[in-house]
Amino acid sequence: MVSLKTYTIIYVVLFVFATVQVLVEFAGLEYFQAATLIMVLSFIKAALVAGYYQHLRYEPRSLTYLMAMGLAVVLALSVAATFSVS
């Protein structure tokens, strides 16, 4: 079981990352650089929530694979559909 301290640290990290995402927007970076950075931060935040708050890290790996399957399905649809009109 993860300690309350760990949960709190993660909460703080999430809080900071969200703020950073907005700051990046105002930092005046090139659009796609900023966009990439912002989305990477989102993925890290999502992984933290799933890994610790949903404690996927401590569950059988098969649950992670199940969710990865859902994600793969979505990516297949989104990427291929968008590619089809490029």
């Binding site: 969710m67 859902g70 994600l71 399905v73 979505v74 990516l75 989104s78 968008t82």
Partner: peptide
């Protein structure tokens, strides 16, 4: 939740498209 991932993913995919 796995099915909900696809539901939201399809919405987000639609937005991206």
């Amino acid at each position: 939740l796995a099915s909900d991932v696809v539901l939201f993913g399809a919405f987000i995919g639609s937005y991206v498209f």
